[in-house]
Amino acid sequence: MATETTAAGHVSPESLEAAGICIDAHGGAIGMPQLCFDWFPNQIFWLVVTLVVIFLILSRVALPRIAGILAERQGTITADIAAAEDLKAKAVEAEEAYNRALAEARTEAQRIAGEARAEIQAELDKAIARADAEIAAKSAESEKAIAEIRASALDSIEAVATDTADAIVTALGGKSDAKAISGAVSDRMKG
């Protein structure tokens, strides 16, 4: 075996055979270790073991798990987007409701303002009418008073004219005839 290598560093043919033609006496490589066919069975065996183990790990555990994670994430993203769209639609709806309420409130306010205006107008009209009526009543009263005053004035004028004419007739020495004087005064008064 290789332990038979002599102390002087000489290589016995047996050790050379045991180590194959791949390693020299100092443990260095001869040529390309890749071409050392003595090692091939070992490498191939362990490669096959390794690949089978990796394949089992991947196909049994890793790949289904990662695929699951990716699918789950995709699902979450899709669900989140759907939820976001839902919320957006709700927001639009809320805005519409708000606008509707606003418009309703505005019409209501206008209606109330109109009503108030009409009410005020009606009261105003009523007050004006009452004032007009009062004014009319008062002017009619005044006119009546004026007419009375005028009538009484005419009466007074007739009496004064009769008296004056009587006095004048008497002063002139005539005999006053009351009936004739009042008739003449009345004629003159009639114009």
């Binding site: 075996m1 194959g20 791949c22 390693i23 490589a29 040529g31 090692w39 070992n42 490498q43 390794t50």
Partner: peptide, 29 residues
């Protein structure tokens, strides 16, 4: 010794590299 790094060595002493021997190939795989 640029090629020495590619030498297949048994992990637990000895020189013989049989198909089942745990070697540095085994270790790094």
């Amino acid at each position: 010794h640029p090629m020495d790094q590619f030498i297949v060595k048994p992990l637990f002493g000895g020189d013989a590299v049989a198909w089942y021997t745990p070697t540095n190939v085994t270790l790094w795989m």
